[in-house]
């Protein structure tokens, strides 16, 4: 069940993503209204992070497109913030907590220009919001997992975006931090922002999100929580036999056959 909406804030159309010409995400097609807290769930290796990365233009796509605020990503970059998975960062890099949050302001003007007072103030405010101001001068590797995650969320806050994409913000995070992060997200939603969260715990997903995307190599369902949280959809997402897709994917890879005809 995929619920398409009018005037979506994010629209994904026939999106296929392949690694080494083997599709890992097939024909994703959905649309999301403004102001939702969207949970993206599915089993391991289902393509959740791949979906976010494709929308953020971090990996090439084999077919289809995605639109944000009815524009291409390029035109609306400044309205989008992305919190990557922790592994994508070089934790040994010489940089402090405040440094990292200030990076949220880098996209606002030419990299060759210095940050001004206002930028720094915004960064400090963002750190305050995640209750990490006391750690501003620490090296990022000296924090706990939950604290690190909060710093990266602060960086996203400093971007002052309309739409937030977060890749597994709750993984490796203690309960207290998880609660703190959820509070921040709720605050964002109250301010009218739209938030996408890749998540793996179904139980808490029911509490956190009001819109769900069920994903397993293809979109199984997308819609308001109450409409899509059904046994049938869960079975399709977590059960189901994908060996056919796997085998076809393997043939694509071996033959390096084009995934679309043109």
């Amino acid at each position: 069940m995929i619920k398409q909406v009018k005037n979506p804030i994010v629209e994904v159309h026939d999106l296929t993503v392949a690694y080494d010409n083997k599709p890992v995400l097939w024909n994703a097609d959905f649309s999301i209204p403004k102001g939702k807290m969207v949970g993206i769930v599915g089993p391991n290796g289902a393509g959740k992070s791949t979906l976010l990365k494709a929308i953020m233009g971090l990996i090439p796509i084999a077919s289809g497109f995605s639109k944000i605020l009815n524009e291409n990503l390029k035109q609306v970059r400044h309205k989008v913030a992305y919190v990557p998975q922790k592994e994508s960062v070089d934790w040994d890099f010489p940089t402090t907590v405040l440094d990292v949050v200030e990076m949220g302001r880098y996209g606002k003007k030419s990299l060759f220009k210095r940050l001004n007072r206002e930028d720094k103030q915004i960064a400090v405010e963002a750190l305050k919001k995640v209750k990490m101001l006391d750690f501003a001068d620490r090296h990022i590797s000296e924090l706990s997992g939950g604290q690190q995650q909060r710093v990266f969320i602060a960086r996203a806050l400093a971007q002052e975006a309309e739409i937030y994409f977060m890749d597994e913000p709750f993984s490796g995070v203690d309960m207290a931090s998880e609660k703190a992060i959820v509070d921040i997200l709720l605050q964002l939603q109250e301010d009218g922002k739209t938030i996408f969260v890749v998540h793996h715990d179904l139980q808490s997903a029911m509490d956190y999100f009001d819109w769900m995307i069920f994903l397993n190599t293809r979109i199984v369902a997308s819609g308001p929580l109450s409409e899509v949280f059904t046994t049938e959809i869960l079975q399709n997402t977590y059960g189901g036999n994908l060996s056919m897709l796997e085998q076809i994917g393997q043939i694509y890879k071996e033959k390096q056959f084009p995934i679309r005809e043109s």
Binding site: M56, L58, V89, D90, F93
Partner: peptide, 16 residues
């Protein structure tokens, strides 16, 4: 130099 060394993915999302 800093942002592209520290967090490539993030830099890309900023259009760098």
């Amino acid at each position: 130099f800093k942002i592209t060394s520290f967090d490539k993915g993030f830099a890309q999302t900023l259009g760098i």
